[in-house]
Write a protein that binds this DNA or RNA. Structure first.
Length: 591
DNA sequence: GCCGTTTTCGGCCCGACTGTTTTCAGTCG
């Protein structure tokens, strides 16, 4: 059992404990253990081996004697006594219910004890039958909201967030690569195109072991991978299976000679491929997953690389992120023919990002100091950062009041001076947008800070127009320069776009307020469609990691994909400015 | 359940918002 699986079981146990009404601190310790286990770079199973020093495990913060025993049980038996005990009282499907808005552990426990409701279908039936209304504190509004939540959940839960899919892709790839003679495993499909969510995983493998005459042994290896939950199909060069979380995986083993054609074919999208095949036919060619072939003599024109295939169709190479048949083929044709206009955009790349202007430190809920964040940013090539710790309304983060915000800014200036020009550190704050759209710090305070990010953290179950008006009112404050995570943060838990993005972006563009695209996948705010919309409205985008730890700055690499899908160039993004001064110049001027 | 001590047990992020109340429990960040 690997760390990810261990962490998930610990986290599930924490949820079951919550439903059971256990001590909140006991629950917290299980959650904390799950987090730290997930972040370990070495596999804990190796620390639990008979010959391993038991002190190493206990040296991990958050792992004590009890948790170490739990981990040992999990590794040895796949489960642990506490988990089994809880599962005799409750049902594993009740964990799904916790993902619904308004459903917390108490409510899940209540519907179970009162109505024996333990899964989504039963809950929906009970809600529709009006049974919930008989329970305390559950009226009409609650039921309505719940049914909407169930609908949204069903709509989204068949797809997986890209970071989750990528993680599984990497784990499966590593297992496949263990077979001698398989040299390359590449994800294709919507994962390669950078879609925010992925329906199933397409993995392409190649190498000497994938040549037609010997591929059977490699297929056998893939079909018996340990993490397969359900083997769905097994063909000559293809294996399809599902994982325990129901993610479907297609693995294809292909000879080197047709790898480019296969990559092109399986990356899609479907619409892009249809258009490409039509283009091929017009040129007397036919495109398949094996090769681009001339019809008159069956001669293979291109097959080993994608670039050769695109070029043979008189197209410049099209980056996977653009392959949606949204005009990229026409643009690639223009580029290939050397036309002066209408070519493929020079898409933004990670190297274009020079600053990260939304981050937290130990002053509130971050895990690193100002200096540590600055050093980590330098290591990643950033030229400027902004320290934007939370304001007081976010009590759980130890948010700052006005006096603390100013004192913190003074420390930021001090550290900035000590950096001696290696990086510029802006002062700042992430203020919270209150119910009426006002901010939770004084204007006099904000006036003394370089970067004011205004974010909504409160609940999103009010009507869309209420939330939209609240955000617009907030960004009208003259000191706000960036609208932080504009659409709310949880992509799958609830309707991610309970905000009129068009109205917000329109006003932001008028005011010169930059709209943030949060680079962390789990916090994705602007879909590629919304990014395109924002660009079309003249909105300036600020892409930030909202890092709470130094390592989170690496999320920048994930975030860039969404920008590329939206055809954005370096010019569309404010924090591509080469210097701190130039960056400030791109932001709204204070009145 | 973990931690750090006072080595045996107390402390462990807390406040706003909502729906349902008519004073508050539950959820969320």
């Amino acid at each position: 059992m690997d760390n990810i699986a261990l962490a998930r079981l610990l986290d599930e146990t924490a949820s079951l404990l919550e439903i059971d009404g256990a001590d909140v601190f006991r629950v917290r310790s299980y959650r904390r253990a799950a987090e730290t286990v997930e972040q370990q770079t070495i596999q804990l199973a190796t620390l639990l081996a008979p010959d391993a020093d038991p002190k190493l495990l206990l040296a991990i913060p958050g792992i004590g004697k009890g948790m170490a025993a739990n981990l040992r049980d999990l590794v040895d038996t796949g489960t642990m006594p506490l988990r089994e005990e809880l599962l005799t009282k409750y049902r594993a499907t009740m964990l799904d219910l916790l993902r619904l808005p308004g459903m917390g552990p108490k409510t899940v426990a209540l519907v179970w004890s009162a109505l024996q409701v333990s899964n989504m279908d039963e809950l929906e039936a009970a809600a529709k039958a009006g049974q919930l209304n008989e329970l305390p504190r559950m009226g009409e509004k609650f039921t309505t909201k719940l049914l909407k939540g169930i609908e949204d959940y069903r709509k989204n839960s068949s797809r997986f967030r890209i970071d989750v899919a990528r993680e599984f892709a990497e784990r499966i790839s590593a297992l496949i690569l263990a077979f001698p003679g398989i040299e390359t495993v590449t994800p294709a499909g919507s994962l390669r195109r950078g879609r925010e969510t992925v329906g199933d995983l397409d993995l392409l493998a190649t190498g000497p072991a994938c040549e037609p005459d010997v591929v059977a042994a490699a297929v056998q290896h893939v079909a018996t991978l340990p993490l397969i939950d359900n083997l769905l199909a097994r063909g000559q060069n293809k294996v399809t299976f599902t994982l325990r979380n129901n993610l479907q995986v297609d693995v294809r083993l292909l000879p080197r000679v047709s790898y480019g054609a296969a990559m092109q074919y399986f990356t899609g999208s479907k619409h892009h491929n249809v258009a490409l095949r039509q283009r091929a036919i017009k040129r007397g060619l036919t495109l398949s997953e094996y090769a681009l072939v001339r019809l008159e003599d069956n001669k293979i024109i291109a097959s080993e690389t994608e670039e050769a295939i695109y070029n043979a169709l008189d197209l410049a190479y099209i980056p996977p992120e653009l392959r949606e048949n949204n005009g990229e083929i026409e643009a690639a044709a223009a580029s290939f023919s050397g036309a002066a206009t209408g070519g493929l955009p020079k898409l933004i790349t990670l190297a274009d990002i020079r600053g990260d202007v939304h981050m937290h430190t130990t002053e509130t809920d971050g895990t690193a100091s100002i200096r540590e964040m600055a050093e980590a940013a330098i290591a990643r090539g950033r030229k400027y950062i902004a320290i934007t710790d939370h304001s007081k309304n976010l009590a759980m983060t130890n948010g700052m009041d006005d006096a603390r915000a100013l004192a913190h800014a003074a420390r930021v200036r001090q550290v900035n001076a000590e950096m001696e020009g290696r990086i510029h550190i802006f002062t700042g704050v992430e203020v919270d947008i209150l119910a009426e759209g006002e901010l939770d710090l004084e204007d006099a305070t904000l006036a003394q800070l370089d970067i004011v990010v205004a974010s909504v953290h409160s609940r999103f179950d009010q009507p869309k127009e209420v939330i939209t008006a609240r955000i617009i009112r907030a960004i009208e404050n003259p000191y706000v320069r960036i609208l932080g995570h504009p659409t709310g943060r949880k992509l799958l838990k609830r309707d991610a776009y309970a905000v009129d993005v068009e109205a917000v972006c329109r006003r932001a563009a008028e005011l010169g307020v930059a709209v943030e695209h949060n680079a962390a996948p789990a916090r994705t705010d602007l879909s590629d469609a919304n990014l395109r919309l924002a660009k079309s409205l003249g909105c300036r985008i600020s892409m930030n990691t909202d890092a709470h730890a130094t390592g989170e700055m690496d999320y920048m690499e994930d975030g860039i994909v969404q920008l590329r899908r939206a055809w954005l160039t370096a010019d569309d993004v404010v924090n591509t400015a080469a210097t701190a001064e130039e960056f400030l110049g791109r932001l709204r001027k204070r009145s």
